[in-house]
Amino acid sequence: MPLFKTYRVGDELPGFETGPLTPEWFSRYAVASGDHNPLHTDPAVGQAAGHGGVIAHGMLVMGLLGRVAAHLGGPGALQEFRTRFQAPTRPGDRLRCGGRITAIYEREGRTFVEAELWAIGQDGVARASGAVVAAPLP
């Protein structure tokens, strides 16, 4: 785990790029999360909804952003985590997930760090953006 206090505003968090997303992954996520909305698993439903087929669960993308947020501290360090879903993620998309420190401050003797997060497709289109507030466990 990185040393929390060594971050400075403007620093990028370690990010990662996914391989091409697959319908199988969406199906596994449906089972793991209990979200069985057929929009994510049944191509006919995705087609009817105007997406040309299945799209990823937004929460799968937010979950991936959580992997970036984890660089701010281990489990329990997160205070707030928000994500806005901006465009559908489809099979074959590759997501570049990353983040950047936006604020560091002290409050009640603890150091808080805020970061913005992003998931951007191989086409340069943002699929989701987020924000996270973290404080190391006292």
Partner: peptide, 8 residues
Amino acid sequence: HGEQGYVY
């Protein structure tokens, strides 16, 4: 799903 937020 448009947005999701958690406060822990």
